[in-house]
Amino acid sequence: MEGQCRAKGLYLKLETDPDLPPGLIGDSGRLRQVLLNLLSNAVKFTTEGGVTVTASCEPGTDGRVWLSLSVKDTGVGVSDAQVEQLFDRFTQADASTTRTFGGTGLGLAISRQLVEMMGGEISAFGTPGEGSTFWFQVPLPMADGAEDQAEGEAVRAIGAARILMADDAPANRELVSVLLGGMGLTVDTVENGAEAVEAVRQDAYDLVLMDVHMPVMDGLDATRAIRGLGGGIGRIPIIALTANVGREQVQTCLEAGMNGHLAKPIDVNQMARTLSDWLNADEARLAVG
């Protein structure tokens, strides 16, 4: 979100508790999804000042700790009476915000559902006209470091590479750009399969992340079109990145010419391992049978 903050003249701060443990066991993909939603809303509804993200933890029970993440902004703010409604589907604190800023509030309803599925809670407080703070906390067991080390080794093994992502959802494109940028990768994004085919014609990419359901041309047809280009372009690794996770759906992706499959919501560890596997594969492995 740094680029959006700079464009609006806002500051973006990150404050972390020095006592945060080195590793926790949890669904990192969904935690990132919720945090990015809160952060995106904060930037959207703030016109001056900025946004502060805070990460901290407190002792819990049964070997767990409470991981707390909050997003504080200097934007339009909310009242205590409006907070509960904000997490209902298609509800905003004031109907005028929809006309000014856009949006329906659906993201907050999904965020609440995800947090509660993880055994946590999510809420907000603030003052109209003076900003707001949205926060959530989830109970997570301590990690022994092995999983973090495995992810780190996978990321280090990737090296420098240029990735093309095709997805019609702006939030997905932004999230993946942030995640892969943090791995040291260069990411370009397009909104549909036709744009993906044209992009690989024009520029050199090391790998394509392809959504399945997109307008204009879906991911399956785009993959077939890329394979039909022949030569090195036709052998580029294409990995499905989709919510279609059924066995038959995965098989359909592979039959269309995709090399692998990643599920949404994103498992960052799995993504790192998959990218490492294909970006370091030899020419024989990349060939499409």
Rank of each mutant, 00 (worst) to 15 (best):
L140C: 12
V197L: 11
M217P: 02
G232K: 13
R201W: 00
D188S: 13
L220N: 03
E198A: 14
R156Q: 13
A194G: 11
A150D: 12
G219V: 05
A169R: 12
I163M: 05
M217T: 06
A166D: 02
D221V: 01
G152A: 15
A143C: 12
D206R: 01
E151I: 08
L229W: 03
V187H: 10
P215I: 05
M165K: 01
A146H: 08
L180S: 03
P170G: 08
A196I: 04
D188R: 11
A154P: 05
D206M: 02
D167A: 10
E153C: 06
N172A: 15
D211S: 12
G231H: 08
L185S: 03
G181I: 10
A154Y: 01
I233D: 00
L209H: 01
A154W: 00
V176S: 05
A154G: 06
A199I: 08
M165V: 14
G231M: 02
P139C: 02
N172D: 05
E151Y: 05
M214D: 10
I163E: 01
I163T: 08
D168N: 15
V212Q: 12
L180Q: 06
D221Y: 01
M210A: 10
A196C: 05
D168R: 06
M142E: 10
E151D: 06
G181T: 07
P170E: 15
A225I: 04
A171N: 13
L209V: 04
P215K: 08
G230N: 06
E151F: 03
V216P: 02
I233F: 01
I226P: 01
D218K: 06
A166S: 11
S177P: 00
A154I: 03
L180A: 14
D168Y: 14
A146V: 12
A169Y: 11
G219N: 08
R224T: 10
I226C: 09
N172G: 13
I158T: 04
V176D: 04
V155F: 09
S177M: 07
G228F: 04
D203H: 14
A160E: 12
G228D: 10
G182D: 13
E151R: 15
D221I: 00
I158M: 13
I226E: 06
V200G: 03
I233L: 06
E198V: 02
A194M: 11
A157F: 00
V197R: 07
N192I: 09
L220R: 13
N192K: 07
R227I: 09
Y205C: 10
G219Q: 07
G231N: 11
R227T: 07
R227V: 09
P215G: 02
G219F: 02
A204T: 13
D144E: 11
V197M: 03
M214C: 07
L179W: 02
A143P: 01
A150I: 10
L207K: 01
N192D: 15
D211F: 05
M142N: 01
R227P: 02
P139G: 07
E151P: 00
I226T: 07
D211R: 11
R227F: 12
T189E: 02
L220A: 03
A161F: 09
E147G: 03
